[in-house]
Computed example of a mutant assay.
Amino acid sequence: MSDEPEQPSQREDFPMQWMIYGATGYTGRLIAAEAARRGLQPVLAGRNEAALRVLADELGLRWRQFPLDLPTAVEEGLRGIDLVLHCAGPFSATSAPMLEGCLARRTHYLDITGEIDVFAHCHAQHARAQEAGIVVAPGVGFDVVPSDCLAAQLHRDNPWATSLVLAFEGGGGFSPGTAKTSVEGLGSGGRVRENGELKRVPLAWKTRTFTRDGADRMAMTIPWGDVYTAYVSTGIPDIEVYTTASPKSIARIRRLRMLGPLLRMQVVQRWLKRRVERSVKGPDARTRADTQAHFWGEVRGNGRAQVRRMVTPNGYALTVDASLGIVQCFLDNPAPPGGYYTPSQLMGPDYVLELPGVAIVGPV
């Protein structure tokens, strides 16, 4: 069923109206289906009217179609919406216009990005979000709920920490949106944080090993969102993030360093993304159910060190539960004061431990 724009419903005697934008994408569909199963009744939205109609009819939900390249269309599409869960990537292109619409409409903004520059842009709107009285909380999925909460736990329990290392090992493969974001990252190089400042470094700048089940996993530095968000959450000045990879994969990534200028060219980016669209479909239900993710967190300072390891469900399964858990909190409780929040600031460091299948499995 279509959904005609309504007047805002911020009063206590009206239920909060919320929207999933990008509902017909890989992750958006997973979230929409689970939201419907839970009886949460989101408005489904996106750019493809035909796909929206089919999905909305299947789930028995309302829908709206509007693009993000016209500010007036975004504002009209958000009329009467109190909260948006934005799932349409790559967020480097879609986050800013959606956020502007949310600021204009006084609509709370959540997304599932993992992109450093998107976090930085959202954080830069903190004062505007305060003035509008809206929460701006990017990264409410696998990027970066588990790692951000792990970082915040370690800082809470070890306030002396001056350096933080995070690492993860995923399973099950990428969605098309995540793969496209990775393509963008090839031309941008790596990032770390030193003395509180973001620093550009080469791809796979450092390598090291992390131990799981008695075996060492080789890993390389990547520009994961926590390079930005963990500093906001903890204030720890030196931060590196790693992902596990085979020595062959690390060598291949390092060979791409010399192609940086070529990989940044728009024509090359478009060609690579078209290849992603043709070849990447995302993990199926069985793969999501059969795979897990593992996280390591390590803090150091004053001659001391603390290591903690955490296991979670597959990243896409966790994204569904983490994002909908945060939406449910808004539906059930008064919204926090307006402004920018990391997941651990919004929900607390232990929020991730409330999610199904998440557990601390290493030293505490």
Rank of each mutant, 00 (worst) to 15 (best):
F174H: 13
G46Y: 03
R270Y: 10
G338C: 02
L353K: 09
T107E: 13
Y340V: 08
D148I: 09
P334D: 00
V241D: 01
H86T: 00
S323A: 12
D290I: 12
N302V: 05
F168Y: 13
L52R: 00
G190H: 08
G46W: 06
K281D: 12
P223C: 07
N333M: 10
T291Y: 13
S249T: 12
V144H: 03
V299Q: 08
F91M: 03
W205D: 12
K199Q: 14
G362M: 05
F91D: 00
I222W: 07
E115R: 07
T319E: 01
R217W: 13
E240L: 04
M218T: 11
I253R: 09
A96G: 00
T287P: 06
Y340L: 10
A132I: 04
S175A: 14
E34F: 09
T27H: 05
L59Y: 00
R264G: 02
A285V: 09
V327E: 04
N195L: 14
V311F: 04
L68Y: 07
G362L: 14
W63Y: 13
L70F: 01
G301A: 03
Q125A: 00
R288V: 10
V276K: 08
I134C: 11
V74L: 04
D284N: 09
H294C: 06
Y231P: 04
G133M: 02
A285P: 03
E298A: 11
Y26A: 12
V364H: 15
H123C: 10
V268C: 01
